[in-house]
Amino acid sequence: MTKRQIPLLGCAVLLAASGLGLTAPAASAATTLHVAPGDSIQAAVDAAKPGDTVRIAPGTYRESVRITTSGITLRGAGEATKLLPAPGAPTKTGKAAADSCAAAGNGICVQGTEAEPVEGVTLRSLSLSGYAKSGVWALWTDRLAVRQVSSDDNGTWGIAQERSTRSDLSGNSVSGNGDAGIFVANTVTEEAGATDTLGTRVRGNDMSGNRIGATVRRVRNLTVEDNHITDNCAGLFLVGDESKPRAGALTVRDNRIVANNRSCPATARLPRIQGAGIVLTGTEDTLVESNTIWNNVGDSPFSGGVVLFKSVVGVPGTGNVVRGNVVLGNGSADLANRDTAGTGNRFDANVCNVSEPAGLC
């Protein structure tokens, strides 16, 4: 059974003397709810109030968890706390409905609405794998923190969010996911202008063995920094199109993007992907600086260290700056500007050997 542990409260003290008083108002203290193997994580989450922490002991838990309450923390014991799909849940090869977290094939869902986003939720120190869609999926959240979470071998995404702002996705490990290890987007259900994330950060994550290490799609004001991205078909995709506002105002810095040389087949939207470090398609005013981009080699249209490419709907990129990067050993080029209609795009002070066209190094 889920156990509820309430820490000792401080006493309320009233001092009164000849017109002078000091009052310490009683405050509702945060509560820790403990979950052990055999207990329901969802039951503890449903009982939690803003400010509470749900602590999950080491063990294996076969369930999905839906969070709709602001200000709660879900914390495990690192890799020893494992979440797997419940028996009978959609698998990576099964068909997923969209009416609940489990039925949609997700592991943990943090779900608000446009009128009432879920705010200040933290997911920390746990492991998810084998879900049909995403290990972690968030919609309409603000200040979501996902830290030290492993999300591996899921059908689509490791950690994904839509319509969310001011997120901190830090120190996570995502591997073996069917699409992107980390996916940040405006929405995947309709055509719409870019979401202003108000400063979402994707930092210090390890991304390997996915189709794409991270995809940043149709958003603005986001930073991708200090990540290690290797052994994917592509390291990082920054995606925009003709929607307004345009995707852009992105910063990509201090990442290590090495040997993303797996080959992934074409899809309805994209040709085959292989050997791509950083790809910018249809973005504006994006800064790519101080990254180490080595040995990304392939023969797909996206192959190369840093590649500018027109969007899938043909919209050129504008005002993007690629500067101060070490880009070596990539093929067919270290730097490639294949967005021939783009304007105001610059390559400055990079260390590289081969560019397309010549003269960018």
Rank of each mutant, 00 (worst) to 15 (best):
1 M>E: 14
10 G>Y: 06
11 C>N: 11
16 A>W: 09
23 T>L: 15
29 A>T: 12
30 A>Q: 12
32 T>E: 08
32 T>W: 02
34 H>F: 09
38 G>D: 08
45 V>I: 14
46 D>Y: 02
53 T>Y: 04
55 R>F: 09
58 P>E: 08
58 P>M: 07
67 I>D: 01
69 T>H: 02
69 T>L: 03
69 T>Y: 03
70 S>P: 01
71 G>S: 02
76 G>L: 02
88 G>E: 09
90 P>E: 10
91 T>Q: 13
96 A>P: 05
98 A>M: 12
103 A>W: 03
114 E>P: 06
125 S>Y: 06
126 L>M: 08
132 A>Q: 13
134 S>G: 07
138 A>K: 08
140 W>G: 06
143 R>F: 08
145 A>Q: 15
146 V>L: 05
156 T>M: 07
156 T>Y: 05
161 Q>Y: 09
161 Q>L: 15
163 R>L: 12
171 G>L: 10
180 A>H: 03
185 A>G: 08
189 T>Q: 13
189 T>H: 13
193 G>T: 11
203 R>F: 03
208 S>F: 12
213 G>C: 13
214 A>Y: 04
217 R>N: 14
222 L>Y: 03
241 D>A: 14
242 E>C: 05
244 K>E: 15
257 I>S: 02
258 V>A: 07
258 V>F: 14
262 R>M: 10
274 Q>D: 06
277 G>H: 01
278 I>H: 00
292 T>R: 15
292 T>G: 10
299 D>E: 12
310 K>R: 13
312 V>C: 02
317 G>N: 05
325 N>Y: 05
327 V>M: 05
327 V>H: 01
329 G>D: 03
333 A>K: 01
338 R>D: 01
344 G>Q: 11
346 R>V: 14
349 A>D: 13
349 A>N: 11
350 N>C: 09
353 N>K: 10
